[in-house]
Design a protein around this nucleic acid. Structure first.
Lengths: 147, 147
DNA sequence: TATTGTTATACTCTATAACTATA
DNA sequence: TATAGTTATAGAGTATAACAATA
């Protein structure tokens, strides 16, 4: 990350973003949030994908998280133990279980989002209009990507 | 991540950045890089911190990575086995071991950086001048943060 | 027979505690 | 005595393979 010549402004920008994620400040905030909410980092990550109250089949979650189905089982077990999510049987296909948030889960997810969306300290050097431009750029980037 | 009202443009921007990191595309690229270079994700992460050829004491690495000293030992073992890094004894204090990259390690680190700095696909919706503005903003953010 | 999810198992990642060597 | 690093060990996190139930 030091004094490298970057091929383009885009790649330098992206490397810098990566660097922000590598700071102890950002990692520390995730740990603090987990401690407060009684979660582990993987559970927190899983939770942030579960923003809809209508459930998602576990197989879909395995696809979205790019992990093995058996791991989805253990993660959903963890969320269920905490009363955050629940398995619901699919009306027509009794094999599939849809995972949805409980009312408690919605609260936990919102609180997690509240903590993690707090921008890192370095953002304070940007003006309000820069914040807006950054936001607008990232909206465009996200819109152009498959979640 | 969905339809939440954000407290400020800054926090929405930061949430969106987080979202980009959660995509399969970004995670997939890290995995591909690891496969190509014969690394595991933790080793790759460690390597990216080791950008200087002059070594860092392991205790300093434990501090930077916010992990236990014993874990630094195992990670450095992994890097040494691959010929990427080496321990060097401190000239005056024979207790401390400075970890530095080998010539091979420098090559691996550069290649890793080359792969990971490739911006995610969504960046293509931004103009060249937006890329530069994004880069400039992130430079300011990083400058204002403690690595 | 193919598909969804679980169980059993093992391997990787990471921390805690006890230890060795040097200061 | 205090500090840098290692070893032994245990606990998370994650995958692979064999399995049960449903389609």
């Amino acid at each position: 990350m030091g004094n490298d010549e970057h091929a383009s402004p885009a790649s330098e920008a992206w490397s810098l973003i990566w660097q922000v994620f590598s700071t102890r400040e950002v990692h520390g905030r995730l740990h603090a949030a987990c401690d407060e909410l009684g979660l582990t980092p993987p559970l927190a990550k899983a939770l942030s994908f579960l923003d809809l109250e209508e459930g998602k089949p576990m197989r879909v979650l395995a696809e979205e998280w790019a992990c093995d189905a058996s791991y989805v089982t253990s993660v959903v077990d963890g969320l269920e133990e905490r009363g955050i999510a629940e398995r619901r049987v699919h009306p027509t296909d009794r094999r599939v279980k849809a995972v949805g948030l409980t009312p408690v889960g919605v609260k936990v997810r919102d609180r997690l989002q509240e903590i993690m969306s707090q921008p890192p300290s370095g953002f304070r050097t940007l003006s309000e209009s820069e914040h807006r431009r950054l936001r607008d750029m990232m909206r465009k980037v996200i819109a152009a990507m498959e979640t």
